[in-house]
Structures are given as structure tokens and as C-alpha cells.
Design a protein around this nucleic acid. Structure first.
Length: 286
DNA sequence: AACCAGGTACTAA
DNA sequence: TTAGTACATGGT
């Protein structure tokens, strides 16, 4: 299916919390300049401006509108989602201001690279590392008087040595990224359509440097899975406090609990928990 | 100067 | 299965 290639469009998305969605830790490829948001998508740069309820977008190169719509999860009924998860008494006690968060559907490869780097790391530094990684290939995209660097393809990354990766401030994660890149190429994960989420998760877990949390991030943010959630430190703390579950619970136990409580909406509920607790701490320290 | 960041691999019990 | 620890790097 190929649609018409266009460079600009408008999308109707009422009540969209664009700040938390783009900068809350599910994606690392956006920067904000004034009221405009610029994001690198493979070899393109997209600019978006949100004026409730319209999202205006502009691309540096012609692109199918469908790709943009998918990315912003346009075909999902968010009104229905938040109506559902906010029926939960405990969850609804958290900040309702987070009810405009959407879950982006990112490029699978970009998600794999991003979340391998994200482990035991902070958001600003993750972004810096990804930028340095992009600069290795020096594919510059000029757009609106600014220069951006295209996200490295797997073919490009395969050519890089572990030392070159390490120079991107990846720390000990450089060997993980190096190894994961090889594994993704060998398994041809990016080109397979015969694979379901459960199988993909197992492939990812078999890679050196990907554990449960990163695998689940890749599934949720890069593969469109919504009926599970990555359990990071904030979701863990949040779930323990919000639902009064044992602090000793394992990763799998917390995830099962959330799935049993929120079902097909688990990822959305966890996103609200994540932002709520992450920002609560930030307010304390600043 | 410790402590932390959207964890994982490894070891020992 | 669970508990503890090393791991690179930069910011606070």
C-alpha cells in the first residue's frame, strides 16, 4: 500500500499532551525550538506544531501521510482509553493532567538502538549519545535553516567498530549495542513479517544487552504492542504505592498485576503511572 | 564527594 | 528463583 507523497498536513488530535508525549522518555529524537518540535525520522525531519485540537506537520521530504498518522497513534481511540483506565479508582487518584499522553509508534530499529542505550542512563544523556551516533555517518538533513543528522541505518552501524560506538559516550553499553546490531542483522528481525510479539520478545531477550525491560520498551514503543508495559524503576515504585503491592515483587509479578488490572490498556495505564511518579520526584528536587 | 539515571549480566546461595 | 554487585559516563 503506497499513498500519495506529501510534505505537510493537519491531524485532528484533541487534548493532546504533546510535551509529555515527545519528551517524557518514550522517544529521544525530538527537540523543541520555540513552539515547534523537530524530530528525525530515518532520513527525514518532521516539524510539528500543536494548537489544540490540530497537529500541524511539515516534512523535509515527501512522505506518506499514513506514516505520520500511525506514528501519532491516530487510529487509536484515546477517549475510550482514558475513559476506561480512569475508571480505576486508584489510578484516577493520580494526576488527571496526564490524560493527554499518547504512545508513539516508533520505527523498530530506532527503538531498538534507543532503548539499548537507555538502560541505567538519563534522558539528556541518551539524547546526546544518539546524536553522536547519528553524526558518525554525517548524513546531514537541512531543514528550515537547521542541520540534523539522519538516524544510522543498521547497515551503517554494522560497519562501525565497538571503539567507534564507545566514542559516543555509550559507556559499557557500547558492547551491548555492537552485539545487538549483529544479532538483529543475523536474525533479520527488521524484515520479518512472520513473527508475533511473543516470538519477537524472545528473540530480543536472547540478545546480549537486552533484558526484560528493554525488550518490553521495544515491543511497546517500536512494535505497537499495548497489552503489556515495561516495568522500570518509576512504574515499579508507582505500582507498589498506587496499588499497594509488595515491594519485593519481581518484574514479572508487577507486569502480570498490571496486565490483570488493565488488560489491553496496560501500556497506557503504565505511561500515566510512569509520568506521574517521575515528575513527582522532579518537583521535590527542584 | 557520593549518588543517580526508563538495567543487564554474572555469580553465589 | 532470588539477592547482591560491577559496569561507563556525565550531571547534580
Amino acid at each position: 500500500m503506497t499513498g500519495k507523497l506529501i510534505t505537510t498536513g493537519q491531524i485532528f488530535i484533541p487534548n493532546f499532551n504533546i510535551e509529555l508525549t515527545l519528551y517524557g522518555g518514550q522517544a529521544f529524537n525530538w527537540i523543541k525550538i520555540d513552539n515547534k518540535h523537530f524530530g528525525v525520522f530515518q532520513d527525514k525531519v518532521i516539524k510539528v506544531i500543536y494548537e489544540d485540537p490540530i497537529l500541524y506537520w511539515y516534512s523535509s521530504k515527501p512522505i506518506e501521510e499514513h506514516i505520520i498518522l500511525e506514528y501519532f497513534d491516530y487510529f487509536t481511540d484515546y477517549h475510550d482509553i482514558y475513559r476506561n483506565i480512569l475508571q480505576d479508582k486508584s489510578l484516577s487518584k493520580l494526576q488527571h493532567t496526564y490524560s493527554g499522553i499518547r504512545i508513539l509508534k516508533q520505527d523498530l530499529w530506532q527503538a531498538i538502538v534507543s532503548f539499548v542505550i537507555s538502560q541505567n542512563n538519563n534522558i539528556p544523556k541518551i539524547k546526546t549519545s544518539l546524536e553522536k551516533l547519528a553524526k558518525l555517518n554525517n548524513r546531514i538533513i537541512k531543514f528550515e535553516n537547521q542541520s540534523f543528522y539522519a538516524f544510522p541505518t543498521i547497515e551503517e552501524l554494522l560497519k562501525k567498530s565497538e571503539q567507534e560506538l564507545q566514542a559516543c559516550s555509550l559507556g559499557y553499553r557500547s558492547k551491548y549495542l555492537y552485539s545487538v546490531t549483529q544479532s538483529v542483522a543475523q536474525t533479520k528481525l527488521l524484515h520479518r513479517t512472520d513473527i508475533n510479539a511473543k516470538t519477537l520478545r524472545q528473540y530480543l531477550l536472547d540478545m546480549h544487552g537486552i533484558g526484560e525491560k528493554v525488550a518490553d520498551c521495544i515491543l511497546v514503543y517500536g512494535y505497537g504492542v499495548r497489552n503489556i508495559a515495561p516495568i522500570d524503576i518509576w512504574v515499579r515504585r508507582g505500582a507498589i504505592e498506587t496499588f499497594n503491592i509488595s515491594p519485593k515483587s519481581s518484574y514479572k509479578q508487577i507486569q502480570h498485576y498490571l496486565v490483570s488490572r488493565f488488560g489491553e490498556y496496560t501500556a497506557y495505564a503504565a505511561q500515566v503511572i510512569f509520568e506521574s511518579f517521575r515528575l513527582k520526584l522532579k518537583q521535590k528536587t527542584t
